[in-house]
């Protein structure tokens, strides 16, 4: 019996496990690779019990070699396999940088070779991980043509996007937020479903302004929206879900409706995805805007360890409330 036959509250982390389990059981080409994912079940226990179920060649413990892991996954993918590799922490993805940006991303463009590869990247702060176990590295890859990037904020999206990523013929980096692993739950459908890559979702509709965000910050935005609602400010929450390619249509529709927009991300501000979204909206929705585009993001520093410093670093509900009030006043 696979866990997917049970329709109960499923955590974000369980949703990821379910997606892997279902795709592995219905597609022989899918296999997992990473450090300590076998008998140990991974640093976060996403693949607990998988090696017993699927055997050591389908749930492969590797040497401590991120570049080797990703490179090998690319080779296997080009030979018709569907590797899903785990970075123990997203931070260590930098050790595999050129395999991702030079090999995986450019193969199809240069010579037509498909690289159906998924890299799972447990990312994000709020867990006292310090500078090397907390980062949001999506912008490094956002700038690289040929990569798809997804970043679910709910258990439903976590499952649906991972299944879509595994079925996608391109390299996909799947950013799973560590803070959400055991903190949020959804009731998931029993039937097979995917969340298509490239589609944002309105997580809360609103009239007065839009907030565009993704990952753990979706929950910050939703919480702020509740408070703002009591003040008579009706904020629409747009969850990108896919960071690349961006669903610009949904973003523009929302901004054309509300005329005001905040872009919120946990990643640091300069060079973050928010800057690109702001530019797109300025280029394409200028006439619809009633106020300046606002960005809320972490300051341009490494993620600090000490609780008061980390707390200072992370964007907070109150930051959103203050910005929304300013926008509403226009």
């Amino acid at each position: 019996m696979t866990t997917s036959t049970i329709a109960h509250d499923v955590t974000y982390l369980e949703a990821i496990s379910q997606a892997l389990d279902e795709e592995m059981s219905q597609d022989e080409r899918v296999f997992l690779m990473g450090e300590d994912i076998g008998p140990y079940g991974g640093a976060f226990r996403v693949t607990e019990g998988f090696q017993q179920r699927y055997g050591q060649w389908k749930v492969l413990d590797t040497p401590l070699s991120e570049s080797g892991i990703v490179g090998a996954a690319i080779g296997a993918a080009m030979m018709g396999m569907r590797p899903v590799v785990e970075m123990q922490f997203a931070d260590f993805i930098s050790c595999a940088f050129d395999q991702i940006t030079e090999m995986a991303a450019k193969n199809h463009y240069r010579w037509g070779a498909e690289v159906p590869l998924v890299i799972r990247a447990p990312y994000g702060g709020g867990t006292h991980g310090g500078p090397f176990h907390s980062i949001c590295p999506e912008a490094w890859f956002f700038h690289t043509p040929g990569l798809k990037l997804v970043a679910p904020s709910t258990a439903y999206d976590a499952k649906g996007l991972l299944k879509a990523a595994i079925r996608d013929p391109n390299p996909v980096i799947y950013f799973e937020h560590k803070f959400l692993y055991r903190r949020i739950k959804d009731i998931l459908p029993i039937e097979d479903f995917i969340v298509p890559i490239g589609e944002a979702e309105i997580k809360r509709t609103g009239r007065d302004l839009s907030i565009i965000t993704y990952g753990a910050m979706v929950h910050v935005a939703l919480e702020a929206a509740e408070t703002l609602d009591q003040e008579g400010i009706d904020m629409e929450v747009v969850d990108l879900r896919t960071l690349s390619p961006l669903d610009t249509g949904t973003l523009k529709d929302s901004v054309r409706k509300t005329g005001k927009v905040i872009i919120l991300h946990e990643d640091t501000k300069t060079g973050g995805i928010g800057g690109e979204i702001a530019a797109i909206l300025a280029e394409e929705c200028f006439n619809a805007l009633d106020a300046p585009i606002m960005r809320i993001a972490a300051p341009d520093i490494p993620v600090p360890y000490s609780p008061p410093l980390e707390e200072f670093f992370l964007p907070k509900t109150n930051d959103v409330i203050i910005a929304a009030r300013q926008l509403a006043a226009y």
Partner: peptide, 21 residues
């Protein structure tokens, strides 16, 4: 407070700080 555990260094005492990677 910027980093934790043994991620510490001090050039005056001839110690390079470790990074997790």
């Amino acid at each position: 407070g910027k980093d934790g555990n043994v991620h510490m260094g001090d050039l005056k005492r001839g110690i390079f700080a470790f990074v997790s990677h």
